[in-house]
């Protein structure tokens, strides 16, 4: 009975040189080696892409700026974010203004951990979140420390009451 079980369980094994029971599959081994090499290249590309900034947190591709001195508002941000990983958004106001408004998508997908300088007032509506600062001087920088909460594309508008900028980011899981 035991012998029969052994014969049944080893029936798919080949005999090499009529003596060695081995489940060798050279065709599969060859394909596996090719896939391994492709996998190594993909892993290398992934690391290079990460070094360039495609996966967020630093890198030349990742750091972006929208707006200009002429537009009155400038937003420096990261193109790629990661869920639960901290990030900073820097807004520079080149015109006298005390208000910064973000559209709804921003506060739905991102948790604002801290704002420097501290705003005088924060108002949340169905459409936007409005920060009011007291006596912000020209060329003042506002820092928003953020923690993305939901993965996926993040598109929102930022405005200082006069000019509006469109920001596009991507949050990795």
């Amino acid at each position: 009975m035991l012998r029969l079980t052994a014969i049944i369980s080893f029936k798919h094994m080949k005999k090499h040189n009529q003596e060695l029971d081995i489940d060798e599959d050279l065709a599969l081994e060859h394909k596996s080696l090719i896939l391994e090499r492709i996998g190594w290249i993909l892993m290398l590309l992934f690391v290079v892409a990460a070094a360039l900034g495609f996966t967020g947190r630093g890198g030349i591709i990742n750091d972006k700026t929208e707006g200009s001195t002429a537009a009155g508002i400038e937003v420096a941000y990261e193109r790629f974010l990661r869920r639960d990983a901290p990030s900073t958004l820097k807004i520079t106001l080149h015109e006298p203004s005390s208000q910064v408004r973000f559209s709804k998508a921003f506060y739905e997908k991102v948790r604002i951990e801290e704002v420097v300088p501290e705003p005088k007032q924060v108002q949340v509506t169905h459409e936007s979140i409005l920060y009011t600062f007291e006596g912000a001087p020209v060329n003042a920088s506002l820092l928003f420390y953020l923690k993305p909460q939901k993965a996926g594309s993040l598109q929102y508008m930022v405005d200082n009451g006069k000019h509006q900028l469109s920001i596009s980011q991507y949050i990795y899981p």
């Binding site: 040189n17 060695l20 050279l26 081994e29």
Partner: peptide, 18 residues
């Protein structure tokens, strides 16, 4: 499915033959 097992775990390979 033994084919899946072979793909996921790999197969033995003879490197010194006789």
């Amino acid at each position: 499915f033994t084919a899946v097992e072979k793909i996921l775990d790999g197969v033995p390979l003879i490197i010194i033959d006789n």
